Simulated assay, not measured.
Amino acid sequence: MLELNGIDKSYGTRKVLDGVTFTVGDGRMTGFVGGNGAGKTTTMRIILGVLSSDAGTVTLQGSPITAADRRRFGYMPEERGLYPKMKVLEQIVYFARLHGWKADAAKKNATELLERLGLGERLNDTVESLSLGNQQRAQIAAALVHRPEVLVLDEPFSGLDPIAVETVQSVLTDYAAGGAPVLFSSHQLDIVERLCDDLVIIAGGQIRASGSRDELRDAHGSTRYELLLNGDAGWLREQPGITVIDFDGGYAVFEADSAEARQQVLRAAVAHGDVVSFGRERTTLAEIFKEVVR
């Protein structure tokens, strides 16, 4: 478990992080979202030891993070760090060697990883000859080639087409499934919502919300409910304690002033015919994000 507790950071009189506290669980994909300047990159750099905090602690499995611990991290910075004149395979092998891998093992693992990321035909091309999307894939390979035990990735999906996004998602999911805590930032909220187990929302250097997707939906989600019947739902307007928001034949969206009123709707729906679906209106991460940061 990677845990941040009470992290503060200021530049002169400007406070950029204020009591940042959250946890990245073992084997959990944690999405870190916020607007430009919210504090995501600064937080990640403090986790990696690139910056020091003014207050607070960062721990791994309950202990302060050491230099040896950080050698087991995989980090993808916001500013990309590949050497443009080097060949792709040569470069990824080099990064593995920096982490202590022997030459043959480094080459084997780098080759397999690049092939999985869709760069198998570009191993001997220079980085500068790749498209921006393929350079992004190579940067991801650089972060993963030494098989890190913790992943911290700053905008890993930036510039990727939908097929590449699916490929990278698969690779990252496998790392989490192997027990690694995975923290990544992204402005692409649809990807975060689809991929992550947990979410952390930051604004103005403060954590505004954190928890699993279901927890955030329970805390910040819609209070409306959806009903779909094999028949007309017009009777819903006559139900006590119910306000109909939207209605179309057998489909209705409504609010209930109590749990009993909501349950009465379900009982009445069953009495009127076949219930196709009944449940809380789904709230997107984008909607939750707008609510908690405003």
Rank of each mutant, 00 (worst) to 15 (best):
T30V: 09
G31P: 02
F32T: 00
V33A: 05
V33D: 02
G34I: 01
G35L: 13
G39E: 00
G39F: 01
G39V: 01
G39N: 06
K40P: 11
K40I: 08
T41K: 00
T41F: 02
T43W: 06
T43M: 06
R45F: 01
I46P: 14
L48Y: 00
G49S: 06
G49Q: 02
V50F: 03
S52R: 14
S52P: 02
S53I: 08
D54M: 06
D54Q: 10
D54R: 11
A55T: 07
G56L: 07
G56A: 12
T57S: 14
V58K: 07
T59N: 11
L60C: 05
L60D: 01
L60G: 05
Q61F: 10
S63M: 13
S63D: 09
S63G: 08
P64W: 12
P64D: 11
T66S: 15
T66P: 05
A67W: 04
A67N: 12
A68L: 07
R71E: 10
R72L: 11
R72I: 03
R72M: 08
R72Q: 13
F73Q: 09
Y75R: 00
Y75L: 08
M76R: 01
M76G: 01
P77W: 00
E78P: 07
E78H: 03
E79N: 13
E79P: 10
E79C: 06
E79R: 10
R80S: 05
G81S: 14
G81H: 10
Y83S: 04
P84I: 07
K85D: 15
K85N: 14
M86Q: 15
K87S: 10
L89Q: 02
E90T: 05
I92V: 15
I92T: 09
I92A: 00
Y94R: 11
Y94L: 11
F95C: 08
F95Q: 07
F95L: 11
A96Y: 05
A96I: 08
R97S: 12
R97M: 12
R97E: 15
L98S: 08
H99N: 12
W101Y: 14
W101D: 12
A103Y: 13
A105C: 10
K108P: 05
A110W: 08
T111P: 10
E112G: 12
L114I: 06
L114R: 03
R116C: 05
L117I: 02
L117G: 04
L117W: 08
L117N: 00
G118D: 03
G118H: 08
G118T: 05
L119H: 11
L119E: 01
G120C: 10
L123N: 05
L123Y: 04
N124P: 01
N124R: 14
T126F: 04
V127Y: 07
